[in-house]
């Protein structure tokens, strides 16, 4: 009886060890595949409507334009321009993502004609009062997480890998991001965000995926629900364009000052 018990415990342990080692490699493989399949997009522009819902059902919305340039040695460059609310029209946020360490970020304040470089450690802070944190909207570089394959799951009729993304950056507001990635096209379908206390904080779902240039998938709608506050933010993307001929010069301080 004792022999049998030891065998069972040992086999469980061996099974667990093998699983951890395998799932780490598998997690990284899946995350890498997601990254690889989106490489080569060059540059994109899009428009976005951000709808904020508070816990009482009140709604406000914002209109935003986005430009992104795929990074070569470093991370992506992105420019976000606010058209509404009208009192911040023309305000622009420029980010140079780094694969390791803090990103470089600048804010253009049109009323003052001022380009202000800002500290980028506020990764966990809300972006423009929304349920999206700065780290949610910044470029998702492969080096920013450790990965672990958890299981296979069926989500919205799609066979999905469930992978745990563990942020490397200590200033991240999350202990874990549980990510559903469909097996067929390697598109992120859902993310459960767990806070530093390991409680479920938010869920992000992606809807209306469309394929551009026969390769690049972009979702029309991102919906982020905060389970702890009851608030919700929906991002509705439109007017995606690829290969616009953007260069690094479109993402420097001069371009910020010339934003209209």
């Amino acid at each position: 009886m004792r022999k049998i018990y030891i065998t069972v415990v040992t086999s469980c342990f061996l099974s667990l060890s093998t699983s951890v080692i395998a799932s780490d490699a598998e997690g990284l493989r899946i995350a890498t595949e997601v990254d690889v399949r989106d490489r080569g997009f060059g540059d994109t522009t899009s428009t976005m409507t951000m709808k904020l819902f508070d816990q009482y059902g009140n709604t406000t919305s914002r209109s935003i334009r986005n430009k992104t340039l795929e990074g070569s040695s470093e991370g992506d460059l992105s420019l976000v321009i606010f058209d509404t609310p009208k009192d911040v029209k023309g305000t622009a946020f420029l980010s140079h993502t780094k694969k390791a360490g803090s990103d470089d970020q600048w804010l253009y304040l049109p009323a003052l004609k001022r380009v202000k470089r800002i500290a980028s450690s506020n990764q966990a802070g809300p972006f423009m009062g929304s349920e999206f944190a700065y780290e949610d909207i910044s470029s998702q570089e492969l080096e920013k997480y450790d990965y672990k394959f958890i299981k296979m799951d069926n989500y919205n009729g799609l066979e999905c890998y469930v992978v745990s993304y563990d942020p490397v950056e200590k200033k991240s507001g999350y202990s874990e991001q549980l990510t559903w990635i469909d097996k067929k096209e390697y598109r992120v379908q859902k993310v459960d965000y767990y806070d530093r206390k390991k409680s479920l904080l938010k869920t992000l779902t992606f809807k209306g995926y469309k394929e551009y240039k026969d390769k690049f998938w972009r979702a029309d709608t991102y919906e982020m629900i905060n389970h702890q506050t009851g608030k919700k933010t929906i991002l509705e993307f439109a007017d995606w364009t690829f290969s616009n001929g953007l260069t690094e010069k479109d993402f420097n301080k001069k371009s910020l000052k010339n934003i209209r």
Binding site: S102, R117, I118, A119, S120, S121, N122, K171
Partner: peptide
């Protein structure tokens, strides 16, 4: 001169 630190300028 401005030095941009992690959370302090």
């Amino acid at each position: 001169v401005q030095f941009t630190g992690a959370s302090t300028l």
